[in-house]
Design a protein around this nucleic acid. Sequence first.
DNA 1: TAGGCGTAGCAAACCGATTTGCTTCCCTCC
DNA 2: GGAGGGAAGCAAATCGGTTTGCTACGCCTA
Lengths: 336, 336
Amino acid sequence: MPQRRARSSIQSVAAAAGVSPTTVSHALSGKRAVSAETRERILKAIEEQNYRPNMVAQSLRSQRTRSVALLLVDIANPYYPAVARAVHDALQAEGYVSFIGNTDGDADTERRLLTEMVARGVDGLVMQPMALSAAEVRELVGPATPLVITTTEAGDVPADSVLTDDVIGLGEAVDHLLQKGIHEFGFIGGLEGASAGPLRVDVFEAAIAAAGAQARDPWIEHAPFTREGGAAAAARLLARADRPRAILCANDLIAIGAMQAAHGAGLLVPEDVAIVGFDDIDTASLVTPPLTTVINPASAVGEACARTILWRVDSGPEAPYRRIVLPTRLVVRESA
Amino acid sequence: MPQRRARSSIQSVAAAAGVSPTTVSHALSGKRAVSAETRERILKAIEEQNYRPNMVAQSLRSQRTRSVALLLVDIANPYYPAVARAVHDALQAEGYVSFIGNTDGDADTERRLLTEMVARGVDGLVMQPMALSAAEVRELVGPATPLVITTTEAGDVPADSVLTDDVIGLGEAVDHLLQKGIHEFGFIGGLEGASAGPLRVDVFEAAIAAAGAQARDPWIEHAPFTREGGAAAAARLLARADRPRAILCANDLIAIGAMQAAHGAGLLVPEDVAIVGFDDIDTASLVTPPLTTVINPASAVGEACARTILWRVDSGPEAPYRRIVLPTRLVVRESA
DNA sequence: TAGGCGTAGCAAACCGATTTGCTTCCCTCC
DNA sequence: GGAGGGAAGCAAATCGGTTTGCTACGCCTA
């Protein structure tokens, strides 16, 4: 039977200072006057007992936990840590802390984490849904909790959203390749079923259409967002007799896998096949050849999510919903 | 003034079912008998109101939050996400969630986060101290909260610890180089003042001594754990007339920076200077030449930390302190 | 001298759950 | 018929704070 030594409480401080808990509370919050002399005694008692207010009790009373849940697909995937870090930094400045949850893009896990966090009374939720729709997420969260949907269009769901305009960067990539005389574009995107999530096929198609080029169905492959997934998908693409001259990838991991597949097939990058990634993770500039990719502003996304939550906490549910869109942009290195 | 619609409480469920809150609680926990018929009514009311117990209130009453704080140097640094992920996974299985905090190796931040998390009533703390000693950490946390110190020797401080035996892997690296006829070893480690933290100079010296080789002071450089830090330190080392033939680095980021510095100085890796990293982050195998490095078992470390916290929560503070040491091992690629 | 006001402090209610002690009812057994 | 015991449920205390209403006192002013 573990016996846990009790932390000092407001009661014991009050007793030591010869006052009521009320007075200690007022001395600390300043919401009502406390005589200088009494305050002295209280501060001394606090010092002696090393008293720190119990935030669980405070939260119960105030109905605010000063915490935010951040539900991402997988914190171990290299794009996300930068987002998480930015969220933390922006929240921390306001005295908030954050929970992190990994959904793995699984519907049940998304549901479970969502309700768990709501039960824990988080003041806000930042979520990147993959399996669930924005509407389902709002439904599970309830109308009261501030919710920021990221990476996925929220539509008219009552939630704020932080998005990236992927068409810009991808369009730049298409233009760049067009200028080099390349017209045959392949694409490796996320899992087939996904109704939500990062950089889906339609974005690719929009970018192609905007550039006046044309996408061909057999050149579109689906793969998990990993190096292995990218390698396998690219191998299939490159084994075709009519293989594309360029492959655009939904993230850098896929792109790096695709480069490995190209090497494996004895093809040169970018001479035989140009490869473009997405995200610009650290590794992108370090591989050989350095990856041409689209910069996905992870820190800006994280910060925008955090600021939006904080803003919504202050403004209440009545304020109109915000939709923040951040630009992406191509960085040309050597793979394309 | 944000008006937050109240979540349904055990009171309202009780009212709807025509029973007292006590009975609802017992129906849910099963700690006392409730008639089948009453339970029916209660479950129906719960369903209708979509009731979920408020975990803040539960925590206040039970004095347990089912949460753990994970305080790392910087989640955006590529080694840590794998640790964090493993911690999450192991905790999640037991219904725990975790807070993450970034200390940046700063003493004040370490102190602030530590007291904040204790005030939030976390059931356990996993910390990688850089500026604070294990004793100071325990002091701040108080005797009651389970504490796992990682990466730093806890000595006889009353805390559990999870460590890696860095001398093994580093020793393998030294042996490997010795066999190649290389005897002049340089080292790039963390910041000079650090009393704690990963892979300090003494580990390098121990590995060198164990191999019967000798370390030379001017070949030891200090640098932040970043690519830029590694590049700068390596540049200094390689500019010397009597430069070392091999550079061992405290992490892979430093090593990659060192490779870039070598290229910049017109030196070939590994022919002119061999470079060995530490951690085996994803990127290590993708750079050119692929980095020879020491595998730091991030997932195993994270899992061990989580399991240790859970074990200590069950066992209470009286159980003898655990010290878990995980092995490291060299993976030879092409940089050395 | 009475009225008004500001200061300082305490008691009690409250947040939303769990747990303990008690009562009531009913059945069984002697 | 009374004792004993189990089942079912409620009231009240508790966790550790915050907030509100109230009182007592001293001072100022009309």
